[in-house]
Nucleic acid binder design. Structure first.
Length: 335
DNA sequence: AATAAAGTCAACCGCAGATTG
DNA sequence: TCAATCTGCGGTTGACTTTAT
């Protein structure tokens, strides 16, 4: 399957011609839009392309979003001339092209969060993904189905009792809440989404596997961002925002590293706010219905459960649990 | 080296809820 | 109020890659 960046030098060799093609597209959608005008593309109509996206299509899509921002997906194929349905465009953006997406191996911390949230929320991948701003729901779902489910199945085959993590003092349920109360609380949290879910896509983390490879200077022409809001300070783990690296030349390549933490797990509030302001806030999951008329809400304070979720110590417990599937002692599970 | 089996993951499908006119 | 449309979500598929034989 062809993915962005997977075709190596050939892809880069073609970049200039691709960019020339992209630059010839009127952002307002003149020529190409006219081709599709009056006959809006539908997924079930003939002439709609399916299958893997090409680098050219990716660049066209990213260029359009750069100009107009994400959202209004219906107009994307019309105005870009992409022979894709709006749904496919949205999916490609949210699951692959969106800046800040982290690809590759999941950390133990991420695994812990996924395992725990899945046990509480079930297969509500979008809700789970809202706690891992750099991961897409599709990624999490795939990772669960291909890795975690097997690991947990192997571990749980040795026992049928409760997951030790729920009995641990670090989990809020131990502080007076019943299991159902905690689940209810978690679901409420998921319903209003994470403190970061109102932000688009976490930081402009260096998504070296996606569009940043394709678009040198992407967004160089974008309007300047307004002054950043006051720093949001989260005192747990990687959300302690202490910028150390800022690449102002290419926002796609800009991210802050937090000393002493897994920088890829971290995200940058300033960059988020900038992107939100630029793109109107409809970047992440949830869409327009999650926005207030005035725009972005400030992240609410972390609840005890949310703090727990981002607590490295708690994640290590889950990481330890995951290691058990490699064959040591019996593992009480409640899955 | 060739083939089969297993694993991975991007993308599609269909449904449901939200939005719009 | 209601129908049409749009958008988001979760389940599933299948092409591609990796590993085993």
């Amino acid at each position: 399957m062809h993915t962005v960046g997977s075709s190596g030098s050939t892809e880069r060799d073609d970049r200039s011609s691709i960019l020339a093609r992209v630059s010839s597209i009127d952002p307002a959608g003149s020529e190409l839009a006219e081709l599709a005008m009056g006959r809006p593309p539908r997924c079930d109509k003939e002439g709609i392309k399916k299958g893997p996206w090409t680098p050219e299509e990716d660049i066209i899509l990213v260029s359009y979003i750069q100009e107009h921002g994400p959202g209004n997906w219906r107009s994307v194929p019309i105005n870009t001339g992409l022979m894709r349905c709006s749904k496919s465009c949205r999916l490609r953006w949210t699951n692959y092209l969106r800046p800040g997406i982290k690809r590759g191996n999941f950390t133990a911390h991420e695994e812990g969060i996924i395992v725990h949230l899945q046990s509480l929320l079930g297969n509500r991948w979008a809700a789970i993904a809202s706690y891992l701003p750099q991961r897409t729901d599709n990624d999490i779902k795939n990772y669960w189905n291909t890795h975690l489910k097997k690991k947990l199945a192997a571990a749980s085959s040795t026992s049928s009792s409760r997951h030790p993590i729920f009995a641990d003092a670090t989990f809020p349920s131990a502080a007076g809440s019943s299991s159902s109360e905690v689940t209810h609380q978690m679901q409420a949290i998921a319903a209003r989404r994470s403190p970061f879910a109102d932000c688009p896509s976490s930081s402009y983390a260096s998504s070296m596997d996606n569009i940043s490879k394709l678009l040198d200077g992407f967004m160089k022409t974008a309007p300047p961002s307004p002054p950043p809001p006051p720093l949001q300070h989260y005192d747990s783990g990687c959300y302690d925002v202490k910028p150390s690296v800022v690449d102002v030349g290419n926002p796609l390549l800009s991210f802050h590293c937090m000393s002493g933490t897994d920088d890829l797990d971290c995200f940058d509030v300033h960059q988020q706010a900038s992107f939100m302001d630029q793109y109107g806030g409809d970047v992440g999951r949830g869409g327009a219905q999650d926005q207030t008329p005035q725009g972005r809400r400030p992240p609410p304070p972390l609840s005890s459960i949310e703090k727990w979720l981002f607590d490295e110590a708690a994640a290590e417990q889950v990481a330890d649990l995951m290691d058990l599937s490699d064959g040591c002692c019996s593992v009480p599970m409640m899955f």
